[in-house]
Design a protein around this nucleic acid. Structure first.
Lengths: 332, 332
DNA sequence: TGTTATACTGGAAGCGCTTCCATTTTCCTG
DNA sequence: CAGGAAAATGGAAGCGCTTCCAGTATAACA
């Protein structure tokens, strides 16, 4: 049915070994023979079967990415970086979107052991020791992006520094009553960013001799609506904060919404800073902490491909910088 | 190295045919034998090699999606629908992100002929007759989402109706001077939505005996910043419009930005309606036309899988409804 | 011219499955 | 308990490649 290497060989009057050699650019083919084979390939419009190649090579030439892509805008940017880098390699990219812990567990269990991929990229989901042990037995290279495990290669940003930076920015603007709105510090997905940013927030307060007030930390499910409710709770306090640091821009939008509902304005009444610098942040004039999403995807893939080529590589940790982007919601 | 079907067969004291039969749930295996095989699989922690299965079955069990995913928020929603549906099937999903016409052409040329996939989903990119002819020769099922070609199955929304609906909404609110901001009607990616919505816009004007004024249609590259510039141009007109219909919410945001820069307010000074109902539209109080992105992805996959199972299926066209979402930027 | 090193080439074996066909086992029936 | 139909099973062939090894052509040299 489909054209195979045998058809090409017959047409070119050579053996299949020779065809294979020209396909793979082996130098040990006489130029004249190569041309003949190339002509036959062209005439038959032949494309080698990737499946057969993979079986023979004992490589899948594909890598998987497991991520909660679509629940948060930032993941899309990371995926762009991943796709762009994979596209330049000989690998295919297969994607698994995780929106529930059940799906995460299923992916964690099945994907690395499925013989479907040569490596796995995991975004924003930190595996347990048990997961990692299971994977090591299977000998599948794994790289984390925006997630943590000491035994695995990973590319991260310093969320603690980011939290510190955001808080310090507010302090430098003269604020003393600074609240923090985030996801639950402990959550089923084991997202660590809210926790790390919280550490930075606490540290910045401490370094500037500001007291930490438990009621100034409000945590709830991720989302604009939830953050809005948390902001209202903060503003209802007897001694409400004059500045709010939200653990993501999405949440910061909820905060802005709450302010608007009360006829309050940022930064005059309450300063607001978010985290991520998603697309709309600029439009909203939202101050934020920018992290290099696209680049994290690129580097994650690079680490993974390197690991696949040389499994002896020790796990590597790459830390990317974050950057303060001061806009109107803090500086007016 | 890896555990193969032979290892399982030996361990269970059966032939490989029998192991294959239990793997594939064939009924013609004695229960006792089945249990023995299952036990061996368990003990050896065996997983069949998908590559070998695929070679033997002569199916790739994977489908590709080609899309300009990341340049516009709406695509992400569609991708979610695609992924969710694929995840429930036995297929893998491999993704190609298209951000340039060169990449699009490369994907259009290579992907369907590559023997890598059993079917292809194309989002928002309309192929040429030549493309389609080439694909038909290769006999690869193709389904379009939000794109058009008479010979291919596709799931679309009625963009003309959407454009009509948006315009009529503005007319019903009393507006007579209604402008339209869109992508170029003819563009390298051959996106058709701006064009179709334009038709609807024109038709609604005509049906209500309103003149079409060429200067009220401003087209430019997609993007908030570009739309902002176009809006300024409209507002600089001697007789500026009192309402602006933007062909996407992203562009509507640019319009709102321009208004803000002039100290104008929506809807009092200028009413604004967008298209898509992306996430932030609600936050902004932006009136818009909602289309079922997620569902379009789901249905696209369903059409494709049906087509793969039965290649005799004639091409099908599924039209999804659009819906007016009236918010503050038109109704105050 | 013969000899030998070197450059090319053909094709069998093997990758890990599915499936078909032949063979063996089990189960009825009389 | 024999005989035959039905159920269960084993394993060869084949999917389309790569690669290794053996063999053949070519070139270089004496």
């Amino acid at each position: 049915m489909a054209v195979t290497i045998y058809d090409v060989a017959k047409r070119a009057g050579v053996g299949i070994g020779t065809v294979s050699r020209v396909l793979n650019g082996s130098p040990q083919v006489r130029e004249e023979t190569r041309q003949r084979v190339l002509a036959a390939i062209e005439e038959l419009n032949y494309r080698p079967s990737p499946i057969a190649q993979r079986l023979s090579l004992r490589k899948t030439l594909t890598i998987a990415v497991i991520a909660p892509f679509f629940t948060r805008p930032a993941f899309v940017e990371r995926l762009r970086g991943v796709e762009a880098t994979i596209a330049e390699s000989e690998y295919d990219l297969i994607v698994y979107n995780v929106e529930t812990t059940a799906k995460r567990d299923a992916c964690f269990h099945e994907v690395p052991l499925s013989h479907k991929v040569d490596g796995v990229l995991i975004i924003s989901l930190s595996p347990s020791d048990e997961d990692v042990a299971r994977w090591e037995a299977a000998d599948v290279p794994i790289v984390l992006i925006d997630a943590h495990h000491p035994a695995l290669s990973r590319v991260v940003v310093n969320d603690m520094a980011g939290g510190y930076m955001a808080t310090q920015h507010l302090i430098e603007l003269g604020h003393r009553k600074i609240a923090y709105i985030s996801d639950p510090l402990v959550n089923p997905f084991n997202f660590t960013s809210s926790r790390d940013r919280y550490q930075g927030y606490r540290q910045a307060l401490a370094d500037h001799d500001l007291p930490f007030r438990p009621e100034y930390h409000q945590a709830g499910e991720h989302g604009r609506a939830q953050a809005r409710a948390l902001a209202h709770r903060l503003l209802d306090l007897d001694d409400p904060p004059t500045a709010i640091f939200a653990a993501s821009d999405t949440q910061a939008m909820g905060v802005l919404e709450a302010l608007r509902e009360r006829g309050l304005r940022a930064p005059d009444d309450v300063a607001v800073i978010g985290y991520d610098d998603i697309e709309v942040a600029e439009y909203l004039g939202l101050s934020t902490i920018r992290q290099p999403f696209f680049e994290s995807g690129v580097i994650g893939v690079e680490l993974l491909l390197k690991r696949i080529d040389d499994p002896a590589q020790p796990p590597q940790r790459v830390e990317l910088p974050v950057e303060l982007v001061a806009r109107q919601t803090t500086t007016g």
